Simulated assay, not measured.
Amino acid sequence: MSRALEDTAVPGAIPAPPSRLIALVFPGDTNHHGTLFGGAGLALMDRIAFIAATRHGRVPFVTASVDRVDFQAPARVGELVELVARVTRVGCKSMTVEVEMVAEGLVSGERRLCTRGSFSMVAVPPPHAAPGWCLPPLAAVREEAGPGPCASDIVFADQANSFGRMFGGEALAAMTRAAFVAATRHGRRITVLAASERVDFRAPVAVGAIVDTVATVVRVGRTSMTVAVELWSEDLMSGARACTAKGRFVMVAVDGRDRPVPVRRDETVDKPS
């Protein structure tokens, strides 16, 4: 990545990626059947719908209604859920965002559609907006590829210090989670964090910012993988994006008794010399 891209703060200079949220289903998120609570799934869907709406309009939004939600299959504990949001209709001050949630088995790679929902989001016009202010039409905003495959989320107040900036530990948690997902998807084996080779923090991340994690497997050994992770921040209103942290994490494939096992190699990744 060039220094020019890293240091830019011009809105739109680095296009935002599609709005995608990836989460792991932990026991605390599930009911007595071991499947994701419907309310927890709806909370994730509403969060990514907000991100998609804000990226389109670059003004504050509130959720006006959840028009329809279809629960088609459960997401089980230990699985990964991937949510993708798309703006499908834009009015003067409101829009419709369609969200799909897909569950994925970490080892099997099996994917199934769990939930599909439609959210009505209403814009809060900027101060001193001109009479007749309206959101940009749908055709005027193109969905472009950002810096790479990534997952988006929002920084909340409980993740920040007294200065309103994201804790370094929270940033590390997001980056190691992205490394885990990338490594597990690569080898289709459960992986554990063995080492953090280096993490560079380049800029603070404010409460309310969108954060994107971009993870790439860059080296594969016999039982380990090195994953390069970038943390990008995006200002909600201006769309200005910057690479705020970079790190490299070593993940080791393990069996059910936590013993190292060979990684399933991928020919698209260079093998170590």
Rank of each mutant, 00 (worst) to 15 (best):
M1Y: 10
M1I: 06
S2L: 06
L5C: 09
T8I: 04
A9P: 10
V10P: 06
V10L: 12
V10A: 11
I14S: 02
P18F: 00
P18A: 02
R20L: 08
R20K: 12
L21K: 07
A23Y: 03
A23H: 04
V25G: 04
F26P: 04
T30G: 06
N31Q: 05
N31L: 03
H32R: 04
H33M: 11
F37L: 02
F37G: 00
A40W: 03
A43Q: 13
M45T: 06
I51Q: 08
I51T: 11
G57D: 01
R58H: 14
V59M: 12
R68D: 05
R68V: 02
R68W: 03
F71G: 00
Q72Y: 10
P74M: 01
P74L: 01
R76F: 04
R76T: 02
R76Y: 04
G78T: 11
L80F: 15
V84A: 12
A85I: 03
R86A: 10
T88M: 00
R89T: 13
V90L: 01
V90R: 00
G91A: 13
V97S: 07
V97R: 05
E98G: 11
A103D: 00
L106W: 05
S108Q: 10
S108G: 09
G109V: 05
E110F: 08
R116L: 07
S118F: 08
M121T: 00
V124E: 15
V124D: 15
P126V: 04
P131V: 06
W133H: 08
L135G: 01
L135K: 02
L135C: 05
P136A: 04
V141H: 11
R142F: 04
P147V: 03
C150I: 03
D153R: 06
V155Q: 05
F156R: 14
D158F: 14
Q159H: 15
A160F: 11
N161P: 08
N161R: 09
F163I: 05
F163E: 13
G164I: 07
R165L: 07
G168A: 07
G169P: 02
A171Y: 04
A173Q: 11
A174W: 09
A174Q: 12
M175P: 00
F180S: 11
A183V: 02
R189V: 06
T191M: 11
L193A: 06
S196E: 12
R198K: 14
F201D: 12
R202L: 15
A203D: 08
A203Y: 05
V205N: 09
V205Y: 09
V205F: 10
V205S: 09
V207R: 05
V207Y: 07
G208V: 12
A209I: 02
A209S: 14
I210R: 09
I210T: 10
V214S: 05
A215T: 02
R219E: 14
V220L: 14
T223I: 07
M225P: 13
T226F: 01
A228Q: 14
W232Q: 01
W232S: 00
S233M: 08
D235F: 01
S238N: 04
G239E: 09
A242V: 14
G247N: 00
R248A: 10
M251D: 07
M251P: 10
A253K: 01
D255G: 11
G256W: 04
V261P: 00
V261C: 03
R264L: 06
R264I: 04
D266V: 00
E267D: 15
V269S: 00
D270K: 15
P272R: 11
